[in-house]
Amino acid sequence: MPRTRAAAPTTPALDIDELIADPATHIVVCCGSGGVGKTTTAAAIALRGAEAGRRVVVLTIDPARRLAQALGLEELDNTPRPVELPGPAGGSLDAMMLDMKRTFDEVVQAHAAPDKAEQILANPFYQAVSSSFAGTQEYMAMERLGQLHAQRRDGADGAPTWDLIVVDTPPSRSALDFLDAPQRLGSFLDGRFVRLLSAPARAGGRAYLKVFSAGVNVVTNTLTKVLGGQLLRDVQTFVAALDTVFGGFRKRADQTYALLQQNGTAFVVVAVPEHDALREAAYFVDRLDEDGMPLAGLVLNRVRVPAVPSLSAGRALAAAEALEELEPSDTSATTGVTAALLRLHADLAQAAARHQALARRFSSAHPGVPVVQVPAAAEDIHDLTGLRSMGAALAGGD
């Protein structure tokens, strides 16, 4: 009796409409490597959610200005700005871009006495840390997300300010660095170097002499030579304020981390059908699974789709070659154009086949991950119409 070949497992489909229509979904986080269209995907999801009746705010952490332009805004900053939606949208859409320096300043002003806050904001070391210190962007992304979620309170009409937050993350693996923010911040605050720098301020007066041994004095003198006396004092002044100002931030970051693990959050990994991007997508999927983060699925963006699927690349090339081999007397003015179009179709068909092979390879390695494929657009998406078309593709439409 001949053996029957087992059917290949069917890849589950990611249903964006079902995701955003679920009132239990409050946060959608778009993550992935750079250049795969996370910003556009986040904007398209946010717009589709608003037009489906949700009150949406979209937060981009990417410093690019594409989101503002696509949403018809001149600029985005740390304050949510309303997006004008044509027609009866049913919901609402606000957009903002993370300003990590401003967010950092707001944390200081909110959790320190006015005179203390003024002293910290004027501190040169603080100004450097809040503008360019490694990890600051991720710390502040966690802080801003927590603030937005806390603002989901009842408005004047009895409805929440926002019932859906869509987050666009930084490119590459740093897109998940904000998941590590609470732990890394705690390690920094509790580290030996920080305790050393903050000991003079904590001890004060004669107690300083008791706290600092001769060995510690040697370290301090060395730091003074390396950093300079004024810079070391700036660092010590800044570190002395960490506990009072950022102890609360560490707690809030822990709360936001726990929020990201709840069922009301959905992570959407965005990739393009290329080896490197899908390898990064696999990393994201595995990391989210390790951290217990709820994964909605994968958006495979910019997938090539041949205009005539029934015409294979081989047949198109054969037809092009046949036309090109004709004698000049047997050809017309359109023969060369037809041959060129057949070759172009062959290239697109080959790219489409390669994209599908890569998609199958990913799904074979991650069979339980829902996937939706978004066809490559004919041109860059730069307005609400383009975002709306992408939203339809995300929902499985054409």
Score class of each variant (00 low, 15 high):
residue 2 P to S: 09
residue 6 A to C: 10
residue 25 T to E: 00
residue 30 C to M: 01
residue 30 C to A: 10
residue 33 S to E: 03
residue 34 G to D: 01
residue 36 V to I: 13
residue 41 T to H: 01
residue 43 A to V: 06
residue 52 A to H: 05
residue 57 V to H: 02
residue 57 V to F: 00
residue 58 V to C: 01
residue 67 L to V: 02
residue 73 L to H: 13
residue 77 D to C: 15
residue 83 V to L: 11
residue 83 V to I: 15
residue 85 L to N: 07
residue 92 S to Q: 05
residue 92 S to L: 01
residue 93 L to D: 06
residue 93 L to A: 04
residue 93 L to F: 12
residue 101 K to R: 14
residue 104 F to P: 03
residue 109 Q to I: 07
residue 112 A to Y: 10
residue 121 L to D: 07
residue 123 N to E: 01
residue 124 P to W: 13
residue 128 A to I: 14
residue 129 V to Q: 09
residue 132 S to C: 12
residue 139 Y to I: 15
residue 144 R to N: 12
residue 150 A to I: 15
residue 155 G to R: 00
residue 156 A to D: 05
residue 161 T to N: 09
residue 162 W to Y: 15
residue 167 V to G: 00
residue 186 G to F: 15
residue 196 L to W: 15
residue 198 S to D: 13
residue 214 A to E: 12
residue 218 V to L: 11
residue 226 V to Q: 10
residue 227 L to A: 14
residue 251 K to P: 02
residue 251 K to V: 13
residue 252 R to D: 08
residue 253 A to H: 07
residue 281 A to V: 03
residue 287 R to M: 08
residue 289 D to M: 04
residue 291 D to A: 04
residue 292 G to L: 02
residue 293 M to N: 00
residue 301 N to F: 04
residue 316 A to D: 04
residue 318 A to S: 13
residue 318 A to T: 14
residue 323 L to C: 05
residue 332 S to I: 05
residue 332 S to R: 12
residue 334 T to V: 08
residue 338 T to E: 10
residue 342 L to N: 08
residue 344 L to E: 14
residue 349 A to L: 02
residue 351 A to L: 14
residue 356 Q to H: 11
residue 356 Q to V: 08
residue 359 A to M: 03
residue 364 S to I: 01
residue 371 V to G: 02
residue 373 Q to I: 00
residue 375 P to V: 02
residue 378 A to M: 06
residue 381 I to M: 04
residue 392 A to K: 09
residue 392 A to H: 09
residue 398 D to K: 08
